[in-house]
Simulated scan of single mutants.
Amino acid sequence: MFVSFSYPKLKRSAIERWDQQADRRSWLAKGLRARLISETSKSVARSVLTIKTLVALCPMIGLLGTVTGMVSVFDVMAISGTGNARAMASGVYRATLPTMAGMVVALSGIYFSVQLENLATRERRELEDELGSH
């Protein structure tokens, strides 16, 4: 959402700031160009970093579900013994489902985070080209 709604305004603001610059060949102008590119690309990279962090947490949340499910299995084993497989099945189900869900979300999240990282790189290059051509 950031790339679709907020980033175009930020990019347009950076281009307008660069267009106001009369001198574009001095060391100071090159520093301004580098700062504009860095600030806009940093804002996109921050969004990607947040998504990557959340993707990395998904397997851990699934593992937490696994632990709670296994506690349920051990509770059933303590009450009814090891011979009642039907009673243990619900705990195994509660242990397996969160793990699977966490892994599915993490794997699909990796795909989307790579796509967003590529988009951020492409947007940075486009901004570098636009500021270089103005």
Score class of each variant (00 low, 15 high):
residue 9 K to V: 03
residue 67 V to P: 05
residue 9 K to P: 00
residue 127 L to E: 02
residue 42 K to S: 15
residue 44 V to D: 11
residue 126 E to M: 09
residue 20 Q to C: 13
residue 105 V to E: 01
residue 54 L to C: 11
residue 4 S to Q: 04
residue 6 S to D: 04
residue 46 R to N: 08
residue 10 L to T: 08
residue 71 V to E: 07
residue 10 L to K: 10
residue 133 S to D: 07
residue 109 G to H: 11
residue 124 R to A: 08
residue 67 V to N: 04
residue 99 T to G: 14
residue 75 D to S: 12
residue 103 M to E: 07
residue 106 A to V: 06
residue 42 K to H: 12
residue 65 G to F: 13
residue 71 V to F: 11
residue 67 V to G: 05
residue 110 I to H: 13
residue 130 E to F: 02
residue 98 P to F: 10
residue 13 S to Y: 10
residue 38 S to V: 00
residue 64 L to W: 03
residue 38 S to G: 01
residue 62 G to T: 05
residue 75 D to N: 13
residue 3 V to C: 01
residue 72 S to F: 01
residue 33 R to D: 00
residue 62 G to L: 09
residue 33 R to K: 12
residue 39 E to M: 09
residue 29 A to V: 03
residue 67 V to R: 06
residue 102 G to I: 05
residue 12 R to M: 12
residue 11 K to I: 03
residue 47 S to T: 13
residue 111 Y to R: 04
residue 12 R to P: 02
residue 95 A to H: 03
residue 69 G to I: 05
residue 45 A to E: 13
residue 2 F to L: 02
residue 21 Q to Y: 01
residue 37 I to E: 10
residue 71 V to G: 06
residue 23 D to G: 12
residue 92 V to L: 15
residue 22 A to D: 08
residue 19 D to Y: 04
residue 79 I to V: 14
residue 36 L to Q: 02
residue 97 L to V: 15
residue 31 G to W: 00
residue 31 G to D: 09
residue 124 R to P: 05
residue 102 G to D: 07
residue 1 M to W: 00
residue 12 R to L: 14
residue 38 S to C: 01
residue 112 F to A: 07
residue 29 A to T: 04
residue 3 V to M: 10
residue 54 L to Y: 05
residue 24 R to M: 10
residue 121 T to Y: 11
residue 123 E to K: 09
residue 9 K to Q: 08
residue 97 L to S: 13
residue 17 R to D: 01
residue 110 I to A: 14
residue 44 V to K: 01
residue 35 R to H: 03
residue 1 M to Q: 08
residue 19 D to G: 00
residue 76 V to P: 00
residue 97 L to I: 15
residue 129 D to E: 09
residue 61 I to K: 05
residue 132 G to P: 14
residue 32 L to Q: 06
residue 134 H to C: 11
residue 110 I to M: 15
residue 7 Y to S: 08
residue 115 Q to T: 08
residue 75 D to P: 00
residue 82 T to I: 11
residue 80 S to T: 02
residue 12 R to N: 15
residue 96 T to R: 02
residue 76 V to Y: 02
residue 108 S to M: 14
residue 80 S to E: 02
residue 2 F to I: 08
residue 107 L to Q: 06
residue 15 I to S: 09
residue 83 G to N: 05
residue 132 G to K: 06
residue 65 G to S: 13
residue 101 A to P: 00
residue 49 L to I: 06
residue 51 I to F: 15
residue 49 L to N: 09
residue 111 Y to A: 12
residue 13 S to T: 12
residue 37 I to V: 14
residue 54 L to A: 12
residue 127 L to R: 06
residue 78 A to S: 15
residue 46 R to G: 03
residue 51 I to L: 15
residue 120 A to R: 09
residue 26 S to N: 06
residue 90 S to E: 13
residue 104 V to Q: 00
residue 133 S to Y: 06
residue 54 L to I: 11
residue 35 R to Q: 14
residue 64 L to Y: 04
residue 128 E to P: 03
residue 33 R to V: 00
residue 134 H to P: 03
residue 94 R to N: 11
residue 88 M to D: 10
residue 32 L to D: 01
residue 59 P to R: 09
residue 123 E to G: 00
residue 1 M to T: 08
residue 25 R to K: 15
residue 86 R to V: 14
residue 33 R to H: 04
residue 134 H to F: 09
residue 99 T to P: 01
residue 122 R to V: 12
residue 116 L to F: 14
residue 62 G to I: 06
residue 129 D to N: 13
residue 36 L to G: 00
residue 52 K to W: 02
residue 58 C to P: 01
residue 5 F to Q: 03
